[in-house]
């Protein structure tokens, strides 16, 4: 690329960043796309945007498919906007494992008119993410934050581990269940109990809602006896317009809890630490695969493992030990024996 072209791109990026910081939607949307696809300008964009983020309140929303997450998001967005907050939403849907394409259907539940309510809604495909779903959702939500969104809601379907990671990376996590969510074993198995700050039993217009709420409370009694924050359980029905105001109030209750005793700072620092660890691993493994591990060596070991001369674990250790090479001490702790 010529020097002139490069400069032009930088200028365009700076204009986009400036406009996004002023709250312009088009620029914000463009930046999110760039970061999402791992554009080479990503580090520059994040460097410029990050100092302006950190002001928003991040809410995670997860639960089984079809539980009513998007419908609840729509209602909450309206309530937040009515209290004059500018809201951002990121809604993640799974992608097709075959084509990599996706049908993103959360937006259809948003009937809040943009003329009346000031929100920014972005649909995202889980499969698209370069470097994992948690990277893209974090970076996209920080861009929304820096562009002036005061509340950022992230919706993910709670089926896999990465989706749970996304929920965990927010200030307040809502787990949405329904009367069909089954017994407590299923809820435990899905890993939903540990991450929830607030439980919602939606579709409470249907039979069985009380039972679910009861069994969730039972589980919480056993688990949270010693914890500072005991998750609240709300019953809602978006169909009958019931329980939504209480849920909204409940979210602010958790927000107030976060404001006390440095709870928010603790939580965010913990998340930052996790993020740093993850990023260090990613950086290292990138370096490893790009510059250090040579294909010939791998092929040679594949042959040996295939012949059962060496186990996969020890083959891997051999490569790492050889790379670390000179450092005898490291070699000892990383022995192939």
């Amino acid at each position: 690329m010529s020097q002139k072209n490069r400069r032009k791109i930088m200028v365009d990026i700076d204009t986009l960043i400036e406009k996004s910081l002023q709250g312009e939607k088009l620029a914000t949307a463009r930046l999110i796309s760039m970061v999402e696809r791992g554009d080479q300008q990503t580090p520059y964009i994040l460097e410029k945007m990050y100092p302006h983020s950190g002001n928003a309140y991040y809410i995670g929303m997860t639960g089984p498919p079809g539980a009513g997450k998007s419908t609840i998001v729509n209602k909450l967005v309206k309530l937040f906007c009515k209290s004059s907050y500018r809201v951002g939403v990121i809604a993640v849907d799974p992608s097709s494992p075959f084509s990599g394409g996706a049908l993103l259907g959360d937006r259809i539940r948003m009937n809040a008119k943009s003329q009346t309510y000031d929100y920014f809604f972005r649909s995202m495909s889980a499969g698209r993410a370069m470097g994992g779903l948690s990277r893209t959702t974090k970076e996209a939500s920080r861009i929304l934050d820096a562009s002036g969104r005061q509340i950022v809601i992230i919706e993910t379907v709670g089926v896999g581990q990465s989706e749970l990671d996304v929920a965990k990376a927010t200030d307040t996590v809502l787990v949405i269940l329904t009367p069909e969510s089954g017994d407590h074993i299923q809820i435990m198995k899905a890993g939903l109990l540990e991450i929830a700050d607030i439980f919602v039993v939606n579709k409470s217009d249907r039979p069985g809602a009380e039972n679910i709420a009861h069994s969730v409370r039972g589980m919480l009694d056993r688990r949270h006896a010693r914890l500072q924050w005991r998750p609240h359980v709300f019953m809602t029905s978006t169909l009958m317009n019931k329980g939504i105001n209480e849920l909204h109030e409940g979210i602010w209750t958790h927000h107030r809890y976060l404001q006390q005793n440095g709870n928010l700072e603790k939580r965010r620092k913990f998340q930052i630490k996790e993020e740093l660890q993850q990023r260090i691993e990613t950086e290292l493994s990138d370096i490893l695969w790009q510059h250090i591990i040579d294909d010939e060596k791998i092929e040679q070991l594949v042959a040996e493992v295939w012949l059962h001369k060496i186990s996969p674990l020890n083959a891997a250790r051999k490569i790492v030990a050889e790379w670390l090479g000179k450092g005898k001490i490291i070699q000892k702790t990383f022995s192939t024996k």
């Binding site: 992608s95 097709s96 075959f98 084509s99 990599g100 394409g101 996706a102 049908l103 993103l104 259907g105 937006r107 259809i108 649909s123 495909s125 698209r128």
Partner: peptide, 11 residues
């Protein structure tokens, strides 16, 4: 379109 690899936002 999804099966053709596109990301479709359904409105």
């Amino acid at each position: 379109l999804k099966e053709a690899g596109m990301e479709v936002v359904y409105l």
